[in-house]
Design a binder for these strands. Structure first.
Length: 271
DNA sequence: TAAAAGGGGCGTCCGACTGA
DNA sequence: TCAGTCGGACGCCCCTTTTA
């Protein structure tokens, strides 16, 4: 991943949050002057400690991340989803899902594996944050509905059906953001940037290598989803501010594919 | 106060249905 | 025919309440 704000101090959690919220809100639409400059200035107003130029670079770094993935410059984590050994391989690559997989493997090892129950209904393999992040990238790239392309080019470890199913629940989740009693879930990740910094290094890279600041940005380190190693039940407000609730934060539209859930007045980044 | 039980939320899988 | 959508079943876990 591209190093965000490499030339300046690392962005803090609060700054990232404010930045994302501003992007999610679409930022005040530029009224006059160069649209792009005004738009970044509006974003910068949400992050007082950062200059417009810093905000611009931060933004472009995110876009660059997407571009790198699009171009295949960023090696995607290897998932072996096609065969039955995928569970172990994926579990090894994604420490966040170990608990359930451990139970699963235990059941298999204890003689209950390949049981009738398992043949009747395969147990679900929880999505990792990395997969979800790739899903968001694919959603940005191909738009809502093109699950096959997303599956083939981004979430290669999941079938189009799985991607579609995941998307369905994801959008349901987004629509239910205003409910009071909710647990935190992987679907709370609505921005690629946020996810990138929250995702444990699935490739074994250090978090900084993935673009996140040292120490990550999550207020609950290690929170990786329902079946991850981190606890569930943390108040959502603790790591997701209301402004971002229900507002998908996606990267800007690119030529050739429709934007998804982008606020009005979202300028095209430098290409 | 600690443990147990029940309720409810969440994520995944599956099958039926629909439209191109 | 195929891909996408929708709704429900299922399993798992956490939270709250109840009980000793």
């Amino acid at each position: 991943m591209a190093s965000q704000g490499a030339a300046t101090a690392a962005w803090t959690n609060e700054e990232d949050k404010a930045f994302e919220n501003a992007v999610a809100a679409g930022a005040p639409p530029p009224l006059d002057g160069p649209p792009e400059e005004c738009w970044f200035a509006a974003l910068a107003a949400s992050v007082p400690a950062r200059s417009t130029e810093e905000v611009r670079r931060h933004y472009e770094a995110l876009v660059e991340d997407v571009g790198a993935i699009d171009a295949g410059r960023v090696p995607l984590p290897r998932y072996a989803g096609e065969d039955s050994s995928s569970a172990a391989a994926t579990a090894a690559a994604a420490p966040g899902k170990d608990r359930r997989e451990d139970r699963k493997s235990f059941e298999s090892d204890s003689g209950k594996g390949c049981s009738k129950a398992e043949q009747e209904r395969r147990k679900g393999i929880p999505w990792t944050e990395e997969e979800h992040r790739l899903f968001l990238l694919g959603l940005d790239k191909f738009g809502k509905g093109d699950w096959r392309s997303i599956s083939r080019n981004f979430v290669i470890s999941r079938t189009p059906t799985q991607v579609a199913s995941h998307a369905q629940k994801y959008f349901i989740r987004l629509n239910s953001m205003n409910r009071d009693r909710r647990r935190s879930s992987i679907h709370d990740i609505t921005s690629i940037n946020n996810a990138a910094q929250a995702v444990p290094p699935i490739t074994g890279q250090a978090p900084a290598a993935l673009g996140g600041p040292p120490g990550g940005m999550m207020k609950h380190p290690g929170m990786v989803g329902m079946y991850g190693g981190a606890p569930m039940g943390h108040p959502v407000a603790g790591h997701m501010v209301p402004a971002a609730v229900g507002t998908p934060v996606m990267f800007p539209p690119r030529p050739g594919h429709p934007p998804y859930a982008m606020p009005v007045g979202y300028p095209a980044p430098h290409q």
